Computed example of a mutant assay.
Amino acid sequence: MFTMKLRKVTAAAAAALVLSLTATACGGDDNDSDTGSGSGGGDKIKIGIKYDQPGLGLKKPDGSFSGFDVDVATYVAKELGYKPDQIEFVETKSADRENALARGDVKFIAATYSINDERKQKVDFAGPYLLAHQDLLVKTDSDIAKGTDLNGKNLCSVTGSTSAQNVKNDIAPKANLKEYSGYSECIAALQSGTVDAVTTDDSILAGFAAQSQYKGKFKLAGLKLSNENYGIGVKKGDTATVDKINKALEKMVSDGSWDKAVKDNFGPANYKNEPAPKIGDIVQ
Rank of each mutant, 00 (worst) to 15 (best):
A11P: 02
L19F: 13
A23D: 07
A25T: 13
C26R: 06
G27W: 07
D32K: 15
S33W: 07
S33I: 15
D34F: 13
G38K: 05
G48F: 10
Q53D: 14
L58F: 15
K59A: 05
P61T: 08
G67L: 02
D69G: 02
V70D: 09
V70G: 05
T74S: 11
L80M: 08
K83Y: 05
K83F: 13
D85V: 06
D85T: 02
V90Q: 05
V90W: 02
V90G: 06
A110V: 11
A110H: 07
Y113T: 05
D117H: 14
R119V: 05
D124K: 12
F125W: 13
V138C: 06
S142F: 10
T148E: 11
G152P: 09
K153W: 09
N154M: 11
Q165N: 14
V167M: 11
K174L: 15
A175P: 05
L190I: 11
D202L: 03
I204F: 12
I204Q: 15
A206C: 07
G207N: 02
A210T: 03
Y214R: 01
L220F: 08
L220A: 08
N227I: 03
N227T: 08
G231A: 00
I232P: 05
K235H: 08
G237P: 04
T239A: 14
I245V: 04
L249K: 11
A261C: 04
V262P: 01
P268G: 07
Y271G: 09
N273H: 13
N273V: 13
P277N: 11
I282L: 13
